[in-house]
């Protein structure tokens, strides 16, 4: 278990170089205040919502223990990354790493990859830090601050809890296949996003 956690920490640290030199500034303004802006940001931004759903699906497929780990570690990592983004913001876009994340997570869900819970932790930390950083940088530019980030993390917790719990509770075999089909759709979207990003570049 100790070696597993060590590997998880090393692999998470390896994701830090993925943080781009520039971050995406995309925000939705509800007019209801920064906390609700944060909630609406997650629910209306597929770049953030789809990987969150994919991770929750993966964690759910891997069982209740992995689901519980992802439920707390993923939002916490997102928060830490967001705070880093607030502190050291840069402005720009990072669609290629986002697309790669779609393909990786969707592929793991589609193949129902039998990975250990420690690898779910690695993915949760890496994904959370990366997307959190992008969100924090955007929040900083939009002057929403930590409250907006809090809204995103709260919404993220709810999304992961609902999706992972739903998948854990699935019993009939065809429902598990439906989850894997959803994973394949995420892979497809990721491939197209990658092509679109490379074309734009």
């Amino acid at each position: 278990m100790r070696w597993g956690l060590l590997r998880a920490a090393i692999a998470s640290a390896a994701t830090v170089p993925m943080i781009p030199a520039v971050a995406s500034a995309h925000l939705v303004n509800t007019g209801l205040g920064p906390f609700y802006d944060g909630i609406s940001h997650l629910t209306l931004t597929p770049e953030d919502l789809l990987p969150a759903i994919a991770l929750a699906l993966l964690a759910g497929l891997r069982g209740a223990y992995a689901g519980r780990l992802a439920l707390f570690i993923f939002p916490a990592s997102w928060l830490i990354g967001g705070l880093a983004g607030l502190a050291w913001p840069t402005v720009g876009t990072a669609p290629v790493p986002i697309a790669v994340g779609f393909i990786l997570l969707g592929g793991l869900v589609a193949t129902d990859a039998n990975i250990k819970p420690s690898w779910v932790v690695v993915l949760a930390i890496g994904l959370g830090l990366f997307h959190g950083y992008l969100n924090g940088a955007a929040m900083s530019q939009a002057r929403l601050g930590a409250l907006g980030l809090g809204g995103i993390v709260a919404a993220l917790f709810a999304v992961v809890a609902l999706v992972a719990a739903l998948v854990v509770a699935l019993r009939p075999p065809w429902t598990r296949i439906a989850v894997r089909v959803a994973g394949s759709w995420i892979v497809a979207v990721g491939l197209l996003l990658l092509g679109w990003s490379l074309r734009a570049a």
């Binding site: 589609a110 296949i177 894997r180 089909v181 394949s184 759709w185 892979v187 497809a188 979207v189 990721g190 491939l191 197209l192 990658l194 092509g195 679109w196 490379l198 074309r199």
Partner: peptide, 20 residues
């Protein structure tokens, strides 16, 4: 389920080629 999974994924690869 395998065929309907194969089609969108490979179609997306084709789409990526078209986009590029």
């Amino acid at each position: 389920w395998l065929l309907p999974v194969t089609f969108p994924v490979v179609m997306a690869m084709g789409g990526m080629l078209g986009l590029l």
